[in-house]
């Protein structure tokens, strides 16, 4: 099982690496590239903690192989803030205590980024659809729902009536 060469753009930077075929994308990001902001929660695709964006779409990085992202672009939580300036979604999570232990948070944020990049004014159903794909054990989701509302406002969308 020879290693295979891959080229992948991660958070705007091109990387080349030689990887074993069985190496998961999550392990590749974390342990080969040191991008440890993507966390691993279940390794069977249920918890959503390892969500990253592939070509702008959020996916479980535990259910992808590193070889499969050859030629693709990957976005992780490390790519969001610009220097000292947090991304509006990160700001919103901070403002609304949308996190406690923070372990699941990068997965939520990446999925929400996909949503808000495509749809700045999502409906309650669309928001829940996205959040429903991840598990948070700390917040009971209340802070996360507030954070989404705040992020929508920050990013210029209208305000969903989520908490009415």
């Amino acid at each position: 099982m020879a290693g295979r060469q891959i080229r992948v753009n991660i958070n705007g930077t091109d990387h080349q690496a030689i990887v074993e075929p069985r190496l998961s994308l999550a392990d590749f990001l974390r342990h080969e590239l040191g991008l440890t902001g993507t966390h691993i929660g279940c390794e069977h695709g249920v918890c959503g903690i390892c969500n990253v964006l592939i070509d702008g779409r959020s996916m479980r990085s535990c259910l992808l192989l590193a070889v499969q992202v050859d030629g693709r672009s990957v976005e992780t939580v490390e790519g969001l803030a610009e220097g000292e300036k947090l991304h509006p979604i990160q700001e919103a999570f901070m403002d609304e205590q949308g996190l406690q232990c923070g372990f699941c948070t990068p997965g939520f944020i990446m999925s929400l980024k996909e949503l808000l990049d495509r749809n700045p004014n999502p409906s309650e159903d669309e928001i829940k659809d996205v959040l429903g794909g991840s598990i948070c054990r700390c917040t009971g989701y209340a802070g996360i729902l507030r954070a989404v509302q705040s992020a929508v406002a920050k990013m210029g969308g209208g305000r969903p009536s989520l908490l009415d």
Binding site: R30, H31, L35, T36, G37, T38, H39, I40, T76, V77, E78, L80, A81, L86, Q90, F93, M94, D95, Q97, L99, C101, G102, F103, T105, P106, I109
Partner: peptide, 23 residues
Amino acid sequence: RGRRRIEDPALLTGRTQFIDDVE
């Protein structure tokens, strides 16, 4: 008062070192 948490910037940017992040 409720206020922004000092823990959060590192957590939100993936910089907090959890055990599996340590090599």
